[in-house]
Nucleic acid binder design. Structure first.
Lengths: 325, 325
DNA sequence: TTGTACGCGTTATCAG
DNA sequence: CTGATAACGCGTACAA
């Protein structure tokens, strides 16, 4: 800035002002400064700016996995919501492990983000302490709780599981199974489904749960194990994700099991492909985009100080009935 | 640090040293400092640290889309490769638009990253100028060129298209079509395939190209249009991604077209699901993980100054023959 | 092994 | 509208 200022015949401070609030500088000097910036190829140092202003314009976001479309979709919408206001996102993966999340929170906090987005409501005690100590807005997404760290935008996974069970029972299915990934929220949906369905039908619910993440291959294996190990030849299967559900559709096809007559399938997430597989997938729709944008708005509200967002926003979900169940 | 130091009975500098290199501090004072940190809940300010040391420990990464699994996979591997060395990744989306990339490069550069990762080899002139001016290691991934900005790790898309054409012709197919997304690299693969196949077979290659990104729905639509508008009833179809290919498989099933006997399908990317769809998908395997890790190593080499990575690394690709072609 | 002095490149405050 | 000056919180000499 010093150099730019000299070239423009003004002081360093004026250059700073020209950049942060052009209206505070006369049009003439503004032009000269812009010229000088062009000539020198000057790129402002945001580190110094953040240090001096105590605002980093950085938002840190911690997600379980960036390759999982459900999380990356939320982050995409969240980023879009924040970008217009000059914020950038510092993104890291926790791998579904609370202890790793704790370490990452500490690491991120050292960069002095203006706010933080977390997925889920389960964090270590130390993590909560650090977040509170940081004194920045924090939004927890993808789940709902009465006692958020700060802000919370999501829906109830227990309720989702329960509602799907009621839907399945009403649709006439009397036997049910679940195929599920190993993460905590998937397990909560599964358990809520199984409990409610058993209650309604009086029949126990078969289950295959995988450690780790969902994949099409595991969906296929899930149905194979349900059929071969648990004698599951008729009924509805609730999956923790659409990907698993698609695997089940494919495996059913290759085993000559008719969908939905013999095996009915319900997914979760309503991903792009759900409407376009054969048969089309009945699933639980969650509005990722709205989730991300609402989280962004909640944080912006805190940051502006003006709008005061509600601490907890329940976005709900919808069951989308298609042909697979 | 001042406060922590007072509590531990040492100066600020000693606290700094205790954090950055504990071996330079006596065990006794180290213990006292750690205690003081615990008590005060001190979190170091990485902004100030970066400003003073001129190393931000930040790597910026610009990808076309974070929701696209191929890019997020590369970033995941890249991040893993850098994390062990204390680097964090600042990630942004360019949306396949060079001008937006340019704006983001400028924005990222203001945070003084220690290095930058870019997807692709096409950037605006201004972007190249800024990158060169920044004087940091830059790695371009996912493509290959003789004139990289700095480092380059990827493979040739033209060669990929050509090799697939040769494979298809050798496999006995005499008629070919393409279904492609609209991004520049996909188009280059498609064109290379079409040119080479036409050369070998003497027959023109049918084509459906979509503006924007790939999806299962577009794969289905692609086959529908090929069949209905271009009278494509027999032959091989090369898709710009596995997702499109899967859409074609589904659409073929719903139209009663046998795969691979009437319609053969070749995808691109060898995603997780490719081996598990019915029929399993013949596709081009690209090692995302290796791509990300190699990019990380290349940058670390520059950063350490020790290992001097080759400027350009061609990782190649493999055709994985399965049942769809 | 520890401390002093200085500088990193901005923004905030106050004065002109 | 512009400038001088003092932080911002830490690393890097250099000295003790």
């Amino acid at each position: 800035m010093e150099t730019v200022g000299r070239l423009a015949g003004v002081s360093q401070v004026t250059v700073s002002r020209a950049l942060s609030d052009p209206s505070k500088v006369s049009p003439k000097t503004l032009r000269k400064i812009r010229e000088a910036i062009e000539v020198t190829g000057f790129v402002p140092n945001a580190l110094a700016g953040a240090l001096a202003s105590r605002r980093s314009k950085l938002i840190s976001a911690l997600v379980p996995s960036i390759t999982n479309i459900v999380y990356s979709s939320v982050i995409q919408a969240f980023t879009d919501g924040m970008r217009g206001h000059g914020y950038q996102i510092l993104l890291s993966e926790t791998g579904f492990v609370a202890e790793d999340e704790e370490a990452l929170i500490s690491l991120h906090l050292s960069r002095r983000p203006d706010a933080m987005l977390l997925v889920g409501i389960h964090h270590t005690a130390m993590a909560r302490k650090m977040l509170l100590g940081a004194g920045i807005p924090v939004v927890e997404v993808w789940d709902i709780t009465d006692s958020p760290v700060d802000l919370c935008v999501g829906f109830s996974h227990v309720e989702a599981g329960r509602v799907v069970a009621e839907f399945a029972h009403e649709a006439g299915y009397r036997r049910a199974g679940t195929v599920s990934a190993g993460d905590e929220r998937a397990l909560r949906r599964k358990t809520a489904f199984a409990d409610r369905f058993a209650q309604l039908s009086g029949a126990p619910v078969s289950d295959v749960t995988f450690q780790g993440s969902a994949s099409l291959a595991r969906g296929r294996e899930g149905l194979a194990r349900l059929v071969e190990e648990q004698d599951f030849s008729q009924g509805v299967i609730f999956c923790s994700s659409d990907l698993l559900a698609q695997g089940i559709i494919i495996e059913a096809g290759s085993r000559g099991l008719a969908i939905p007559d013999q095996i009915a399938v319900i997914g979760f997430g309503d991903q792009d492909f759900a409407a376009h597989v054969e048969p089309s997938l009945t699933t639980v729709h969650v509005d990722y985009k709205s989730l991300g944008l609402t989280a962004a708005k909640a944080i912006l509200g805190r940051l502006d100080g003006s709008r005061t967002a509600p601490p907890v926003t329940d976005l709900g979900f919808d069951i989308v009935r298609r042909l697979s169940a």
